[in-house]
């Protein structure tokens, strides 16, 4: 399992698990998107505490989820990303789409 979802009302908390590459991003994307559509989510939090490795497929994952949650008028939060992952997020301008938070609660 690549992602563990906790859902409360119109908020989704997604704990990403393992490496994020083009292969694993697909499963994460499908599970998260199904949940967003089902509850018409207004908030999505992506928790990167369980992610050791990520390539640019992770940026694609963030971009795509932003577009979807934004279409429901919702917002995107990124928490617990490593320095390395944060560097890639900033390089790709993801801080313009999502709130990148350093300290977040790990559920």
């Amino acid at each position: 399992m690549a992602v563990k979802l906790s859902i409360s009302q119109d908020e989704i908390f997604a704990h990403l698990l393992g490496d994020i590459d083009h292969h694993t991003a697909k499963e994460m994307r499908e599970e998260i998107d199904a949940a967003i559509h089902r509850i018409q989510a207004k908030s999505l939090t992506l928790d990167f505490s369980g992610v050791e490795f990520m390539d640019s497929s992770g940026i694609g994952l963030v971009m795509g989820r932003y577009k979807l949650i934004n279409s429901y008028g919702g917002s995107l939060n990124i928490i617990n990303a490593s320095e390395r992952i944060k560097k890639m997020m900033y390089m790709a301008g993801m801080d313009k789409l999502a709130i990148i938070n350093d300290g977040g609660k790990v559920r």
Partner: peptide, 21 residues
């Protein structure tokens, strides 16, 4: 950077930029 032929919106177009950096 950010150029991609992919139309699904799931590819960032950053592959070569990441390799370069």
């Amino acid at each position: 950077p950010m150029y991609t032929t992919c139309t699904t919106g799931e590819r960032s177009g950053l592959g070569f930029a990441v390799m370069e950096s």
